[in-house]
Write a protein that binds this DNA or RNA. Sequence first.
DNA 1: CGTTAACCTAGTCGTCAGGTAGGTATTCGA
DNA 2: TCGAATACCTACCTGACGACTAGGTTAACG
Lengths: 150, 150
Amino acid sequence: MMFSTRAEYGVRVMAHLAGRDGAEPVALGAIATAEGLPLAYLEHLMARLRRAELVASRRGAHGGYSLARPAGTISMAEVVEALEGDIAPIECISEGADGTLVCSREEHGDGICPTKLLWARVRGSIVTTLREMTLQDLAKPVPERNETAA
Amino acid sequence: MMFSTRAEYGVRVMAHLAGRDGAEPVALGAIATAEGLPLAYLEHLMARLRRAELVASRRGAHGGYSLARPAGTISMAEVVEALEGDIAPIECISEGADGTLVCSREEHGDGICPTKLLWARVRGSIVTTLREMTLQDLAKPVPERNETAA
DNA sequence: CGTTAACCTAGTCGTCAGGTAGGTATTCGA
DNA sequence: TCGAATACCTACCTGACGACTAGGTTAACG
């Protein structure tokens, strides 16, 4: 719908990695099997995540992927943005260089776009929600209690 | 991006209508010209809005569209939902019959989907934002002061 | 040196957003 | 009563892009 499977699959992989925090790299094939997702397709997503420096990779035998930073420091906004690109509810709204929102409809000098307010707020609420969550929040859906936990 | 031009165009038309609140119906051709949007395409969107009973129509000469209810009582959630269908950030999340969110990944009896929490929150923030705004909020981008206003 | 797995580049395929076209039904003014 | 205006409906087209496959090359371990 609004986000494609890129975000869906990518987030699942990241959540999977977050479950193995700090440990050895995990082979993508193992993740694909565990999550029931197509390996070849995941490779494309990992390329995006790697370019965004959210995951580190080790090639060769016993290689794989691991988080580039602790799960608690990776916001979901970073993850989703790396996978889907700039977050904009509709085409005509995008983020300018200085962080302000630009409406392409306003560039013709026509004056104010009345609907900009709406989309700006929608975008804001999405970004805020994504920023407030980290990978760690997704990594602990089953809180076991044999440890005092991380 | 996340919403298509259906939402963008449709909201523009609705905002346009809100500016003529209560008055005579406005011909779609006039709106299309004013907003610079393709008339034939807008007709499809109006069909959705009409089926959702957000606009009323009058056929024939001097016919056109008008809001079915006062602008202040029409939430943007209704408008967007009528245009785009059910609001869901990704395919696997949808609203069940009783309003609870359902993740299609959980239906295989696999247990909890860790990413559901994320998408549920994103969806929630979008819906909340859309619900908090009404058409009236879009209709007054240029607050004139020759009247005490509506 | 061979196996493993990341990495890269091209494709294919189906769907759907975005828009066009042309007709029919309804209402008004003259 | 006619004809112009306008909503309404169904069908169709087209390009882009999401989702995925295929097949290779490079790097690291044992």
